[in-house]
């Protein structure tokens, strides 16, 4: 299993994955941390992400903190989070300053819609790539489907779905351990 060789490497890796993340950083985090660098296995990524999303705060920031902490403690956590936020902060503020001049250009609106469609595809592909981590967890398929239907199709609030389905799913996992 590969590891970042310095806090610096951690900072710049998160910097580069954040800068590629138009319309969502998560697929890039998976791509870079798991496929490109090999710092995490797929199932480790899912586990960290699961914890990141039940905690308050943006999932991707929580994930950066955890990955950084895992390799270099507090310094690593701050480097990962800082790397992810620094450059995008400068860009988003520059855009805000320029905004009034180009926001209404139809070509900009159309390009952004197209990029939005790509982001949707990137997230779907990431989810499908992570599905095989559930191979050995047969009841897991049911909970994948339940979460998708409740939040995606029925648009129920995420918090209640996480609590409700989460409780049943964690309970099932505990019961299967005990058998």
């Amino acid at each position: 299993m590969a590891q970042p060789d310095s806090v610096r490497a951690l900072f710049f890796t998160f910097n580069s994955l954040a800068l590629r993340g138009f319309g969502g950083v998560l697929p890039w985090a998976q791509h870079v941390l798991v496929d490109e660098r090999g710092w995490l296995e797929r199932d480790e990524f899912v586990e960290l992400l699961s914890l990141a999303q039940v905690l308050p705060g943006p999932n991707i920031c929580n994930l950066a903190l955890m990955v950084g902490d895992r390799f270099f403690g507090l310094r690593g956590a701050l480097a990962a989070l800082g790397g992810m936020l620094a450059a995008p902060l400068v860009i988003v503020l520059s855009l805000a300053i320029l905004y009034s001049r180009f926001a209404d250009l139809p070509i900009v609106v159309a390009a952004l819609r197209g990029m939005g469609a790509v982001s949707a595809g990137l997230i779907l592909a990431m989810a499908l790539k992570l599905l095989p981590t559930q191979r050995s967890n047969r009841p897991g398929w049911l909970f994948v489907a339940a979460a998708f239907v409740m939040v995606g199709l029925l648009r129920w609030p995420i918090l209640w779905v996480m609590l409700g389905v989460g409780l049943v799913s964690v309970g099932t996992a505990r019961w299967r351990q005990a058998r």
């Binding site: 979460a147 409740m150 996992a173």
Partner: peptide, 28 residues
Amino acid sequence: WVRAFRTGMAPITIGLLLATGWVLAAPN
């Protein structure tokens, strides 16, 4: 219980990712 939490929350994370992709694509 910590192991059960990890095993149990993973499928929900994946389901929520599928839902996010779906919700982003639906307006199109």
